[in-house]
Write a protein that binds this DNA or RNA. Structure first.
Lengths: 168, 168
DNA sequence: ATTAATTTTCAGAAAAGATTGAAAGTTCAG
DNA sequence: CTGAACTTTCAATCTTTTCTGAAAATTAAT
């Protein structure tokens, strides 16, 4: 297998994985493409390589930047914008987990809080069971949340540590 | 807010969360409905409460059983089948994570193995960088995988106590 | 200030994914 | 066996999500 084929396969696989986890296939593919590109790519290069429209490329690249895993590079003397992906997989994973938590999980957990104010007789078994399920979910989510925050913090410390060493 | 309203809201929220994470909205809603139902429900009850067709109810309940988080109950003397959800949230979470790993993540990681056989000169920087990205992803995935396997083996309460302390 | 290069937006088109409902299949009591 | 009760399947349809492409906006060089 040659390099071009291998990259192509990687991009396809990454797209499948993304869409199974609720991430738009094209966004995952652009991310994969940038991950395996040693040079920054322009919008045109992304469009050509993935055979997608300019609008699609533009919107998904913007989303990837919002996720904090792709950044814009300006080359001196060039009018075009170029893009690179964060290559450290641990950092990528932490940013994704952190963002999904913030955007998708937290709002729903907040909404659950209100549901505990369901009015019920103290001896209403149905109502008590309901509140208990909601409580368990929140308890679990809070634990998981702290776990994630812990991992993210570990990552930041590690990163800070390494940077310090680099300049020592 | 009364109990019926609260349940309805919970079901809607759970559906939204599911669809954001690549799980069919209706499947998540059925799961939510069973979670907050103190009695086992029949297909007809699920259809009525969620206003969905028999076929839809049937297929999604089957999927939930494949995930190992819902089970079929037979009541003596009743012809109908009834369904209940696993109520322990920790168990639910572990089953979901385990299944998604098995079904979605592992196949793709296996596919990545082949990509490392890309033929390249030893001094081909592009190819080396590519193999290095694939390697990093696999290394990361293997660590995460071991982490998940470890969690799955843990006892719920032990986890609750320890993880909280670890990241406080 | 004009023009050319480039990026952004978004309404409509296309594709993907979910749902229905009726027919086929199964099960079991009588 | 037969038929009523119930479950399963799947082609057709509907819904949601994603993508396109051309127009509008922005940017920067002359």
């Amino acid at each position: 297998m040659n390099l071009a084929e291998a990259k192509q396969q990687f991009i396809q696989n990454w797209g499948v994985l993304g869409s199974q986890w609720g991430i738009n296939r094209t966004m995952a593919q652009i991310h994969a493409l940038l991950l395996v590109s040693s040079e920054p790519l322009s919008a045109d290069e992304i469009m050509n390589q993935l055979k997608i429209s300019r609008g699609n490329a533009n919107m998904n690249v913007r989303d990837l930047m919002d996720w904090g895993i792709v950044e814009k590079i300006l080359k001196p003397g060039e009018r075009k914008e170029f893009f690179v992906a964060e290559k450290d997989i641990w950092t990528v994973a932490m940013r994704i987990v952190k963002e999904r938590k913030r955007r998708e999980v937290e709002p729903i957990l907040n909404a659950l809080n209100q549901l505990k104010e369901v009015d019920a007789e103290k001896n209403d078994r149905e109502a008590q069971e309901f509140v208990s399920v909601i409580n368990d979910i929140q308890k679990f989510a809070n634990q998981a949340s702290k776990g994630v925050d812990g991992l993210v913090k570990m990552d930041e410390h590690w990163f800070a540590g390494t940077l310090l060493k680099l300049f020592k």
